[in-house]
Amino acid sequence: MMGVIGGNRGSIHKNIAPAMADINSVIKSHLVLIDATRILTAHGPQGGNLEDVKVLNKVIASTDIVAADAFATTLFGLKPSDISTTVAAYRKGLGEMNLDRVRIVRV
């Protein structure tokens, strides 16, 4: 989503959860890809420490952006409901965050 925002990008960062949901309700994504070959578990997103990097070698693909995010959350050992942006997007009806209702195909 970063690429579609011009100007003072940092300014949408305050109250980021509804802001992200708003952008996604205007600019719809058709296919969501999440690269989880290596994930940074702490001290990110810039800087970070190699000790905080976990190698998972996973790639997530989905047509539902909320479901993709919700699944990615589990890789960090968290629940989708822990992430405010996911919750806000779910409430706005942008997708499914309840992983029981998502068909997950592992390849």
């Binding site: 960062h13 305050k14 109250n15 980021i16 001290h43 810039q46 800087g47």
Partner: peptide, 22 residues
């Protein structure tokens, strides 16, 4: 600073800080 003055979350500076331990 936004969180102090407006009681809204921001964390932009924290995210950018390049020091490994932040």
């Amino acid at each position: 600073c936004i969180p102090f003055a407006k009681r809204i979350d921001c964390i932009v500076c924290e995210e950018h800080c390049p020091i490994p331990q932040k």
